[in-house]
Design a protein around this nucleic acid. Structure first.
Lengths: 233, 233
DNA sequence: AAGAGGTTCATAAAAAGTTTGTAAAAGCGC
DNA sequence: GCGCTTTTACAAACTTTTTATGAACCTCTT
């Protein structure tokens, strides 16, 4: 498991199942999330649904070939594209690269080389597009980019851990959140057996966001289960 | 002559004069500006003086080899690097790519392929103008060309590093900027583990731009995360 | 139905561990 | 030498973790 590769999504496009299978296996083992497509058209669909960070594609495919796929992708996206092909002739390479591909690797290729090229291209991808979107529920709004929380229009200063706890609760507003889930989300999957933290931090949060911390209106406890966040109407 | 290649500067590094000569000729004919260096050390010098848009380098060189050159360049720069080498073994490729190279082409290579790869990498280079635009937020305005900053109409003298720090913060005004991001932007991607710089420079900046440096109004600290620039209304 | 025993929850506060602001010394390049 | 950057040091401020205590709650027994 490597930090820089975590959660990066790679779309593999090839009409030969044995190729996609081996790529899926190898890339998955490096910690990447993989989806595959067997032709250009379905690749475009998956691309739009899933927004991968990198595309690896074959050249010869039904429906829409590799060069066509590159052109289509480039109309909308800057995603790095690596073309894999058995055709090693220079004009094929030039055509693909000029169509928008970033790299051209000739089959058969060494898997370590491909992985290194994948790393090289992913390095350039803007670090972690913030998947975190602003949330607004009831009297609360939370902006992860600015790292700010507003309660009834007032800004509330939160420490990092408080922020993460509240963030998780807001994202699951209205639902009962188990101790385990909350602990795992904020403290990591390891410390799921220490609910003392939660009591302390929930207490702190209530002091900061509740009008009457002793009789919480938003941050309710769900006995024997966990907590539940109830946004004001 | 092609439009996309106009005025782009390419640094060619190789200790064999016949290689640099043919590359210079070919690349020049495509409208690129070329300089050459015959070893890693002088390549670094030329790089700093000339800020090329792309570097093409051999692997085997006196003084500082291709891999070392990649590492050195990556400390400060995101410039695309294409490595040319007679060594076609996979571990050479992996080593170079992981050292920061973006592409690895084995000699002998087709010139059209190389040109296509050059075009592919140059496509990704951010057009300079984008980074050089003036910014004005709240009480601040910053002119990158003149390297001047005005706070409430008053000019403030800043050192180069101070300027870059403030520039980055202004470009992300209102958002929490992580230590990592700020360090990477100003000191290069390698020095992301030295937040001491930031403390010092933020302190300097506050002295220069805040009315009361001890109680900052603009340059706020976001504890455990980084800093946030809040423009005056 | 009431009470004992055990568990969970809330709160406060002490202890431990980090981070931040600041000053100043050392290093570097022109 | 001079100005800028880097390094070092340390106290102050802050966050997180740990600990303690009492109240509230459930279960089981009588």
């Amino acid at each position: 498991m490597q930090i820089s590769g975590e959660h990066r999504r790679i779309l593999v496009v090839d009409d030969e199942p044995q190729i996609t299978r081996v790529l899926r296996t190898t890339l998955s083992s490096q910690g990447y999330d993989i989806r595959t497509a067997s032709d250009g058209e379905s690749a475009l669909e998956t691309f739009h649904d899933w927004s991968p960070h990198l595309v690896i594609t074959d050249l010869a495919m039904p429906n829409l070939d590799g060069v066509g796929l590159c052109r289509k992708l480039r109309e909308k996206s800057q995603v790095p594209i690596i073309v894999l092909s058995v055709r090693g002739q220079e004009r094929n390479k030039v055509e693909a690269l000029d169509a928008g591909a970033d790299d051209y690797v000739t089959k058969p290729f060494g898997m370590n080389e491909l992985l290194a090229r994948v790393r090289a291209h992913l390095r350039r991808v803007v670090p972690e597009e913030k998947q975190e979107q602003a949330i607004a529920v009831g009297d609360f709004s939370l902006d992860p980019e600015a790292r700010r929380v507003l309660v009834r229009g007032e800004e509330v200063r939160l420490t990092p851990k408080e922020f993460e706890v509240l963030s998780y609760l807001l994202r699951h507003a209205g639902k009962a959140v188990t101790h385990r889930a909350l602990l795992a989300a904020v403290w990591g999957a390891n410390s799921t057996e220490q609910p003392e933290y939660l009591r302390v931090f929930v207490g702190q949060l209530r002091k900061k966001i509740e009008a009457d911390p002793a009789n919480p209106k938003y941050l309710l406890t769900e006995p024997w289960v966990g907590y539940r966040f109830e946004p004001g109407e």
